[in-house]
C-alpha cells in the first residue's frame, strides 16, 4: 500500500491534477524528511503541541492547586520540576501553560500573516496612491515601540489572553506587509504576471491567486523567526498583568514571577525558559527547512 502510493505519487508523468498535487506534496515531504534540522524542529514542535493537547492526561497535579507549605521545592519524585512560589507543581503548569502560550502564538500568526501578506501584496501590485497610503499606515505602526502600543491597546480593552493576542497582532503585521510588498515589486513587472493580465482576470484574482503564493515561503521563514519574539511579547504583557490572568499558567508569566528567586531556586524560572527556548529554536529550524523545501526547483 505504502509502495503503491509512493510510485503513484512520484510518477514522473502524472495523469491527473490530484496525482500531480499529491506528488508535489509528497516530494516536499521527502525533501523535508531529508533535512535533519528541519525534522528536529518538526519533532520538537509536534511533541510540544501533543503535550499541550493532552495536558489533562499527562499532568500529575492540578496546575492551580496551591500548597503553601511546600513552596519553591526542588525537583523531586513527587514534583518532577519542583514547585513555584505558591507551591504549585511546575511540571503540570508547564503542560497547561503550553496551551496558553502556543495557542497565543498560533493565534497571532494566523491573524497576522494573512493581513500582512494581503496589505503588502495589494500595495506592491497597485503602486501609486494605494501603495503610499497603505505603506504610510504600516510605517506608523512600525514607528511605535511594540510593547507600548500593545500595552495601550490592552489597557483600552480588558486585560486577558484575547486582548493580548489582538494587541500583539496589531503590532506584528507591519514587517510582513513590508516584506510582501518588496517581494511583489520584484514580480509584478514580470512577463508571467503580464500574461495573467492578458487573461482578462481582475487585479484581485492576480494578487490572490498568483502573487501571494510567491510571497508565502519568505513569509513562513520570517514568521518562524518571529515566533520567539511573539512569545516574549506575550510574556512581557503577562508580567505587566495585561496578558494571561492568574492563576492561568503561561510560560512568559511563569518566568516573570520567578525572577525574584532566580539565584536561590533557579529551576522555577529555568524550566519555562527552556521550554520557550526549545520551541523558538524548533520553529527556526523548521522555518529554514521549509524555505528550502517549498521551492519547486529544489524538488
Amino acid at each position: 500500500m505504502n509502495a503503491t502510493f509512493r510510485n503513484w505519487a512520484l510518477d514522473e508523468n502524472p495523469s491527473s491534477r490530484r496525482q500531480a498535487a499529491w506528488g508535489n506534496w509528497y516530494r516536499i515531504w521527502l525533501n523535508l524528511r531529508g533535512n535533519a534540522l528541519g525534522m528536529i524542529g518538526l519533532t520538537i514542535i509536534a511533541i510540544f503541541i501533543g503535550i499541550a493537547i493532552f495536558a489533562p492526561l499527562l499532568a500529575t497535579h492540578d496546575p492551580a492547586m496551591q500548597d503553601l507549605g511546600n513552596r519553591l521545592a526542588a525537583p523531586s519524585a513527587l514534583h518532577w520540576f519542583g514547585t513555584d512560589e505558591l507551591g504549585r507543581d511546575i511540571y503540570s503548569r508547564l503542560l497547561y501553560g503550553g496551551r496558553v502560550t502556543l495557542g497565543m502564538v498560533i493565534a497571532v500568526v494566523v491573524l497576522v500573516a494573512p493581513i500582512g501578506l494581503a496589505i503588502g501584496c495589494i500595495a506592491g501590485y497597485f503602486g501609486g496612491i494605494v501603495d503610499t497610503i497603505l505603506m504610510r499606515i504600516t510605517d506608523i505602526f512600525l514607528a511605535f515601540p511594540r510593547l507600548v502600543l500593545a500595552l495601550a491597546f490592552v489597557a483600552a480593552l480588558k486585560p486577558g489572553v484575547e486582548s493580548a493576542i489582538l494587541a500583539i497582532a496589531l503590532t506584528a503585521w507591519p514587517p510582513y506587509a513590508r516584506m510582501a510588498r518588496a517581494e511583489t515589486l520584484t514580480v509584478r513587472g514580470s512577463d508571467f504576471i503580464a500574461a495573467y493580465r492578458l487573461t482578462g482576470g481582475s487585479s484581485w484574482r492576480i494578487i490572490f491567486r498568483h502573487i501571494m503564493p510567491l510571497c508565502v515561503p519568505t513569509l513562513i521563514v520570517r514568521v518562524t523567526l518571529d515566533m520567539s519574539s511573539i512569545i516574549i511579547t506575550a510574556a512581557s504583557l503577562g508580567f505587566l498583568g495585561m496578558g494571561a490572568q492568574p492563576p492561568s499558567p503561561e510560560w512568559g508569566a511563569m518566568i516573570a514571577t520567578a525572577k525574584r528567586f532566580i539565584f536561590e531556586q533557579w529551576w522555577v524560572a529555568a524550566i519555562p525558559g527552556i521550554a520557550i527556548f526549545c520551541v523558538s529554536l524548533a520553529f527556526n529550524f523548521l522555518g529554514d527547512a521549509l524555505r528550502d523545501v517549498l521551492d519547486p526547483k529544489g524538488n
Binding site: D191, F192, A194, A195, T199, G200, G201, L214, P296, K297
Partner: peptide, 30 residues
C-alpha cells in the same frame, strides 16, 4: 472579452511562466 480575440507571446520563456504553477494550472487560468 478583448483577450479572447488578442493574445501575446513573450520573449523569455523562462520569465513568462509562473514558476510555482504546473502547466495545467497556467493553461487553465484563461
Amino acid at each position: 472579452a478583448f483577450f479572447r480575440k488578442v493574445q501575446m507571446v513573450f520573449q523569455d520563456p523562462y520569465g513568462s511562466l509562473h514558476p510555482r504553477q504546473t502547466i495545467d494550472r497556467i493553461l487553465s487560468e484563461l
